[in-house]
Design a binder for these strands. Structure first.
Length: 307
DNA sequence: GCCATCTGGTTGTTTATTAC
DNA sequence: GTAATAAACAACCAGATGGC
């Protein structure tokens, strides 16, 4: 059954004749007859009773008219949805992001973006660098915001900004008010690390091992909030994204290293060749580029860190 | 005057072939 | 294996004409 046959059928009823339906739909009159004949042949039942020059709906015609109305309405709604997707007003965007970007930076972008597009569906998944990049690689999410993914995943990486890191220590700690802090000063400290596979931890381990220091103290905490609380209660010190401890929790201090710049690159991650998606996703990517790259120009660390 | 049928031109679809 | 192209075929439409 073809939708245009149903349109023709509906138009005949609304206009009252085959001829006026043909004029309305800009078909030849013979086409209207053919449409109805095809519809009747397909359904195996006459839809109109021909009485000389007049035609009248049969019972089957009445039944079809009620159902056809629903079908045509559904089809029109579907066409409108497709038009909205083409225009970037609808569709489904799936984003994955690491912390603290997900909770501190993305809401400022996502909220106005979604309010402007009430028909848009958006899913934001928060995870580790590895899980976000793997989800992008297997197609579960459209785009990720994370650190450089593993080369084996064959993903495109577009750097947006550098995430500055700093040392969070209890305010009572001897290094809290020290002059310059060198990385060697942390050699004997209990450093609380994030979980294995976390990009922040990898950066910390690399920096420490380059200076001949083993950063592993035996304590790993996979959540930034719990990590902050642990430092606040004196369990040890931690190296954290500045954005996640700005301002530092009560009873803690944020310091930077004098000899090592602690920062990790964060960027957009997407599948090669998958870039040409819907307009809504492209608009979101453009917004992320514009807004998150701007962040690089106003680093949070200047406001948050001080002896 | 209105609808059905026939005929010819146009458009769209399918299939086979070729190139990458 | 996939995409592009061309040929054959089918479906569609419009105009002309006939029956009621």
């Amino acid at each position: 059954m073809e939708l245009r046959h149903l349109y023709t059928f509906q138009t005949i009823i609304k206009e009252g004749s085959f001829l006026r339906a043909a004029e309305k739909l800009q078909y030849a009159q013979s086409t209207i007859t053919l449409h109805i004949q095809q519809l009747e042949a397909e359904l195996g039942v006459p839809l109109f009773a021909r009485r000389g020059k007049r035609v009248q709906l049969t019972d089957a015609g009445h039944a079809l008219y009620e159902q056809a109305d629903l079908l045509v309405q559904k089809a029109q709604a579907l066409q409108q949805t497709m038009a909205d997707i083409v225009a970037g007003e609808a569709g489904h965007i799936r984003i994955g992001a690491i912390e603290p970007t997900a909770s501190l930076r993305l809401p400022d972008l996502i909220v106005p973006f979604c309010l402007e597009r009430p028909k848009l569906h958006l899913t934001l998944e928060v995870g580790s660098n590895r899980s976000v990049s793997e989800r992008v690689a297997d197609g579960s999410i459209d785009v990720g915001i994370c650190m450089l993914p593993e080369a084996s995943l064959d993903l495109t990486y577009e750097q947006l900004f550098m995430e500055p890191m700093a040392i969070l220590l209890p305010a009572s700690h001897q290094l809290a008010h020290a002059g310059n802090i060198q990385i060697s000063d942390l050699a004997d400290e209990r450093l609380i690390l994030k979980e294995r596979g976390c990009g922040y931890r990898q950066m910390i381990e690399t920096a420490f091992l380059q200076h001949g220091i083993n950063p592993y103290s035996g304590i790993e905490i996979g959540n930034l909030e719990v990590l902050k609380n642990a430092v606040q209660r004196g369990l040890g010190i931690a190296i954290m994204p500045v954005a996640s401890v700005n301002p530092p929790p009560e009873g803690t201090t944020l310091r930077t290293l004098q000899d090592v710049k602690l920062e990790v690159p964060v960027g957009l991650v997407y599948k090669v060749g998958q870039y040409a998606r819907g307009r809504a996703l492209n608009a979101m990517l453009e917004l992320m580029r514009t807004s998150l790259r701007q962040h690089e120009e106003s680093p949070l660390i200047d406001e948050a860190v001080g002896p």
